[in-house]
Design a protein around this nucleic acid. Structure first.
Length: 933
DNA sequence: AAATTCACG
DNA sequence: GACGTACGTGAATTTC
């Protein structure tokens, strides 16, 4: 908003705030390292009070905190004694000065200072400018030097006394109206600032004289007329000194500012930045108060009480991890004690142990809990008795275990209590296990997701890795309990005392990680990402995964048989063409046949010395010989059979008749999900034969599958982020974006567009998202490299903003070692400043990550909102495939579902981000996934 | 366990 | 001047 009529500018005298805060508070120090912090604390409190007090209907439109800078100003040049009797700044205040600047910025309030000028001059200049522009001004200060500015739309406000000072207030103080205040000050002088004035004349006398003679100039000119002899002589003798004093107290309205009023617009504070700063300062009360005001969770500030001058990293005192100290809970009295402790704390770390990894099938073996570092327990439930000479244990339960139902009934109120935070590492797993036992665990925190929000791109987020990295502790490897390979046992066969050490340690580590991560989230500025994009996805995905999708086993089975037959035929032909029998599935053997035995041209060995026989190589060879084509066909069938038609059958859950994938929230650095066991995000679709596999993914009786997918979401995001007007307009007009790109690049009118030209433009559009290179485009389009480079050059010529965006993204990454999505997701790019080919990879990844990541954020937001949006419909969300959501819905509710889901998806960016391009969602429906897509 | 290949967005 | 080059995934298979 441009500053003008109707605007209201607040100018805060920052230095006055600092000194008030310093003197009002005892010399507080930061607990962890003893840094003096009292003035900063008071300063923040005053700023917060200011924000709260000024939120009403008369709220400012523009605001700035103005600070003094440097000790030497133009007034010292006029008069070397100016402010000379000022006491030096107290030693414990000096280090706090920069922190008050950071505090102001953390509140997202403009923070201004100018070397060689006092804050008062900047305030005067800004007030003048604001009045000229037709706006109102309030100066938050009680400094009398500023009173000369009052009147005609300018007021002062004493923030501590909450008292407004207008023209009348100034008159009360100086006995003159604001326009004569400098005259009075010039006569009366100021002992604080060491302004000399006229000896023996105070404010009262000065006001009397000014009122009688009208102005200081007239008074000095007519000093002879003053009746009192002593007063007359003083004015005559000290004329120069009085005139100097006036120049000293007169504020400069022409301060050269390097910013304008428009730059001072009021902005909402960013919760992460603000709370991050307050957390760093360890202001517990204020952090909580502001977190409440911002309606986010207050960060936990670790309680660090060093003896003496311990460095902060040593200050986080936690007992060493000692598995021998953990308790095994075997009776209800003990369990109740743990539940009481958890209620007392308000949080508890929890981990479940099971007979395997498939959440839909395994049994709950035990539960571990931890309420405080080092204080953890394990509740064994169905451990088997070690059975005599039977290596695999007996079927009898071991002694001293409570019943599963008994324990869960006791824990359920705690685990479902909204007032107790349940902390876990990969909570989706535990939530699904517990859900199958009738416990809806909530609310939750997840250390894996905290690490992901802060450290994506830096390292993995598994518990062992996190423990090593952040706790310097290597957890007991699960292998030592279960063994490996064929002789591997399940957790229920582990002796209870060993299980206790392992399981309770996991809960202990999880709690410690939580204590490390929780305050870091705010400092890393990813609280919103964690709280809005990661954590809420856990119950949504858990529900989807438990629902699963119906897969027709007989369809897959028939396909497998058909593939087998075709493969056998192809294999015989291949052996015939090769003149010998060999394993077609072995790239090594195939390479030797093709390049050594048959002597085909173009054999290239990779770093391991094996010939490359990838699809692109075989494709080129196919013009020379029949064999490579046969191998390509065979490979396609082999892939479809082994990865899909065979493997999917293994994944059909016998209880539900459905396939239940598992999504990894922290799998992809960009924010995308990953699907495993089985991967349902790479079911074939591009080839006709492959697409038929989707016919096996079916709707239940009386239902249909509905697929909704974002149209060109990444290109739309690129158009928005890079600010490409032509692309944005094309999307608004619903144009064919690839045809439009082709038209712009090749100067072909849209109605004369050929499919081939459009195809090339499409490849360029996608290439751009990936950090295009001439080589890559040439390979993709199978055209000469120079030609591909020509296309790219022309593309950037036509859309220079894209190149700017890419350059800026890479420059940002090089400076900060990270990039960000529109929603604040952070993706670290640790390799960006590496040398050699790694730098190229990192650069392209950095260009791609904000685009892919923003698209991922958007569909996450849609998914998180979806359960509420479709709650009244007989529909379930089943799958996510990056830009597609698949639903199953009662046939007669299909249209309602499409409308509701589309509404959520198309508006998923709002209100956090307003995209300059519309998001368009295409819908399809059918009895199976092939029809729906 | 690494390398190769190929399925998806 | 050479080098290596589209981004992000997971799974099956062969090979060492």
């Amino acid at each position: 908003m441009a500053f003008g009529k109707g605007c209201h500018l607040h100018l805060i005298d920052g230095s006055a705030f600092i000194f008030r805060a310093y003197h009002a508070l005892p010399p507080l120090t930061r607990k962890s390292d003893g840094l003096p912090i009292g003035a900063v604390s008071g300063f923040c409190n005053m700023l917060q009070k200011y924000v709260e007090d000024n939120a009403g209907p008369d709220a400012p439109t523009h605001v700035a905190v103005i600070f003094d800078k440097g000790s030497h100003t133009f007034r010292n040049d006029m008069y070397d004694q100016y402010k000379a009797n000022r006491e030096a700044m107290p030693e414990d205040l000096r280090p706090q000065i920069p922190l008050t600047r950071r505090a102001t910025e953390a509140f997202n309030i403009a923070c201004k200072e100018l070397d060689g000028y006092e804050a008062d001059d900047m305030i005067a200049t800004l007030a003048c400018q604001a009045r000229k522009a037709g706006g109102r001004v309030t100066i938050i200060s009680s400094d009398k030097d500023l009173m000369q500015l009052v009147g005609d739309g300018v007021e002062m406000l004493d923030a501590m006394k909450n008292k407004r000072i207008d023209r009348d207030g100034v008159f009360e103080k100086f006995g003159v109206w604001p326009d004569r205040v400098v005259d009075v000050q010039a006569l009366a002088g100021d002992s604080v600032d060491n302004v000399p004035g006229a000896p023996g004349i105070g404010i009262k006398t000065a006001a009397l004289l000014i009122n009688e003679y009208g102005s200081l100039e007239d008074l000095l000119d007519r000093a002879e007329e003053i009746k009192q002899p002593k007063r007359r002589q003083t004015l005559i003798d000290n004329r120069d000194q009085i005139e100097l004093s006036k120049r000293l107290v007169q504020l400069d309205c022409e301060t050269p500012l390097d910013f304008g009023l428009d730059d001072l617009e009021v902005k909402e504070p960013d919760p992460d930045t603000l709370l991050g700063f307050l957390t760093e300062m360890e202001f517990r009360t204020l952090t909580k108060r502001i977190a409440d005001a911002l309606e986010v969770e207050p960060p936990v500030i670790p309680d660090t009480t060093p003896e003496g001058a311990n460095p902060p990293e040593d200050a986080v005192e936690a007992p060493p991890i000692d598995p021998a100290a953990y308790e095994c809970v075997r009776d209800m009295a003990a369990l109740e004690r743990w539940i009481a402790k958890a209620r007392d704390r308000g949080w508890i770390a929890i981990d479940t142990e099971t007979t395997g990894l498939n959440e839909m099938r395994v049994d709950l073996v035990g539960i571990s809990l931890c309420v405080e570092a080092g204080e953890a327990c394990y509740i064994p439930l169905i451990h088997k008795e070690a059975g005599g000479d039977d290596l695999f244990g007996s079927d009898d339960l071991a002694e001293g275990q409570m019943g599963v139902d008994e324990v869960l009934d006791a824990l359920r109120p705690l685990l479902e209590d909204p007032a107790v935070m349940k902390i876990g590492q990969n909570m989706k797993y535990d939530a699904k296990i517990l859900a199958r036992y009738g416990v809806k665990i909530a609310p939750i925190d997840d250390t894996m997701l905290m690490s992901y929000a802060m450290n994506s791109g830096l390292h993995g987020h598994g518990m062992d890795a996190l423990s090593e990295r952040y706790l310097s502790h290597s957890p007991i490897p699960i292998k030592t309990l279960l063994g490996t390979g064929k002789s591997q046992i399940t957790f229920d066969l582990v002796p209870i005392d060993e299980a206790t050490k392992y399981a309770a340690e996991d809960a202990d580590i999880t709690l410690r990680l939580w204590q490390v991560f929780k305050p870091q989230l705010h400092k890393a500025k990813v609280t919103r990402v964690y709280e809005r994009l990661e954590r809420p996805l856990v119950p949504v995905l858990a529900e989807m995964e438990m629902t699963g999708i119906k897969v027709a086993r007989d369809t897959l089975s028939r396909m497998s048989n058909a593939f087998s037959q075709k493969m056998a035929g192809l294999e015989a032909e291949i052996h015939e063409l090769a003149g010998q029998s060999f394993n077609v599935g072995s790239p090594k053997q195939l390479g030797e046949i093709l390049f050594d035995k048959m002597g085909l041209e173009g054999g290239k060995k990779g770093k391991t010395g094996a010939y490359a026989t990838g699809a692109d190589v075989l494709e080129d060879l196919a013009t020379e010989h029949e064999l490579p084509r046969r191998v390509l066909d065979w490979r396609q069938l082999s892939k479809l059979k082994s990865t899909y038609t065979d493997a999917l059958q293994e994944h059909i859950n016998p209880d539900t008749g459905r396939v239940h994938t598992s999504y990894v929230i922290s799998g992809a650095a960009t924010g995308r999900l990953a699907s495993t066991d089985p991967n349902l995000q790479n079911i074939p679709v591009r080839s006709e034969e492959g697409r038929r596999i989707r016919e096996a993914f079916v709707a239940d009786e009386g239902k249909v599958l509905v697929s909704l997918d974002y149209s060109q979401i990444e290109l739309r995001i690129l158009a928005h982020m890079a600010g490409i007007d032509a692309l944005k307009q094309a999307f608004r007009d619903g144009q064919d974006i690839h045809a439009m790109t082709a038209s712009e690049m090749f100067n072909v009118p849209l109605d004369e567009m050929t499919p081939d030209v459009r195809r090339q433009a499409k490849a360029i559009n996608f290439g751009v998202i990936y950090g295009i290179s001439g080589f890559g485009l040439a390979r993709n389009l199978r055209i000469p490299r120079a030609e591909a480079q020509g296309f790219i050059d022309r593309y950037f010529e036509r859309f220079p903003g894209i190149r700017t965006y890419m350059d800026e993204t890479v420059a940002f990454a090089r400076e900060h070692n990270r990039v960000e999505t529109l929603f604040g997701r952070v993706i670290h790019t640790p390799e960006i400043n590496a040398k050699g080919p790694r730098a190229g990879f990192a650069k392209r990844a950095a260009i791609n990550a904000p685009i892919q990541g923003t698209a991922a954020d958007i569909i996450r937001r849609a998914m998180i909102r979806m359960p509420d949006a479709i709650a009244d419909l007989p529909a379930k969300m089943l799958l996510q495939v990056h830009d597609e959501l698949l639903f199953e819905v009662d046939t007669d509710a299909t249209d309602g579902l499409i409308a509701a889901a589309r509404q959520v998806m198309e508006n998923a960016a709002d209100p956090v981000v307003h995209l300059d391009v519309p998001l368009v969602v295409d819908a399809g429906k059918g009895q199976n996934w092939a029809e729906a897509h």
